[in-house]
């Protein structure tokens, strides 16, 4: 096997494909974090609820997500969703196939939400019990206390984890290539079959993932430091 500049220049003819893959990966990850956050929040609220059924459902869900492989989850969601709904053959920007993108985003979000619900719960439970007592003693309801007192403080602890989750999802979204979502990994495979070059396309993909993840995690770390500094106001 040869890694050659010649191979690279042949692969780079397909730069637009990689460009599209990059866009898909970023979009997919953004949608996933947002949906995942909402789901994680709901799961966290359920697990903190005084209703036993809600707590149980939340626990069971989280355990199922954690104890099964992500690729299987993605495959199941894909066949399940495309079995129930017949997605129109619509392409966003001309190249994002909705019928694959949506199942991918949903299954990634279902997975991410399961992992992140504990982070949210921890963030909420980490707020001093005295805050709740003070709020309740002022006549605030449970809901008002959560909304105005606890969650705004918890968000600060939670946000960095979600930014980091974004980086994780960028990488994990590569499993969506198995259901044909044309993200970076899938595009690398496409280039492989078009050029019969196996290694170089993957190097390009690796480079793209790194260029997405490394700066993002640096930026997060920077803001985290800033936020901690402002706490010592």
């Amino acid at each position: 096997m040869q890694i050659s500049l010649d191979n690279f220049s042949r692969v780079m003819k397909y730069a637009p494909l990689f460009g599209r893959g990059l866009v898909v990966t970023v979009l997919l990850s953004l949608v996933t974090v947002l949906l995942g956050f909402i789901l994680a929040f709901i799961l966290a609220m359920m697990s903190l609820s005084s209703v036993k059924i809600l707590r149980a459902v939340s626990t069971v869900y989280v355990q199922i997500v954690r104890c099964t492989p992500m690729m299987v989850q993605v495959l199941i969601m894909y066949y399940l969703l495309t079995g129930i709904i017949s997605f129109p053959r619509v392409f966003l920007f001309g190249y994002i196939e909705v019928g694959r993108f949506i199942p991918a985003a949903i299954s990634l979000a279902l997975n991410s939400g399961g992992y992140m619900s504990d982070v949210i719960r921890g963030g909420i439970e980490g707020i001093d019990q005295g805050q709740t007592e003070a709020a309740r003693s002022l006549g605030m309801t449970k809901g008002q206390t959560m909304r105005y007192i606890i969650i705004p403080q918890a968000i600060k602890n939670i946000l960095p984890s979600f930014a980091n989750e974004f980086v994780t999802i960028i990488k994990e979204s590569s499993v969506c290539s198995v259901i044909g979502v044309a993200e970076i990994t899938k595009q690398a495979q496409n280039v492989q079959s078009a050029t019969f070059i196996s290694l170089e396309p993957l190097f390009v993909a690796t480079f793209l993932y790194f260029c997405l993840c490394f700066p993002t995690s640096r930026i997060i770390a920077y803001f985290e430091r800033r936020m901690r500094a402002s706490d010592q106001r």
């Binding site: 001093d128 007592e133 709020a135 002022l138 006549g139 309801t141 007192i149």
Partner: peptide
């Protein structure tokens, strides 16, 4: 209960002001 708690102010050893 929330209605009754409004009538009773409470002051804690550790203040419990809302830091945000």
């Amino acid at each position: 209960l929330d209605k009754f708690r409004q009538k009773m102010g409470m002051v804690f050893q550790h203040f419990n002001l809302f830091p945000h």
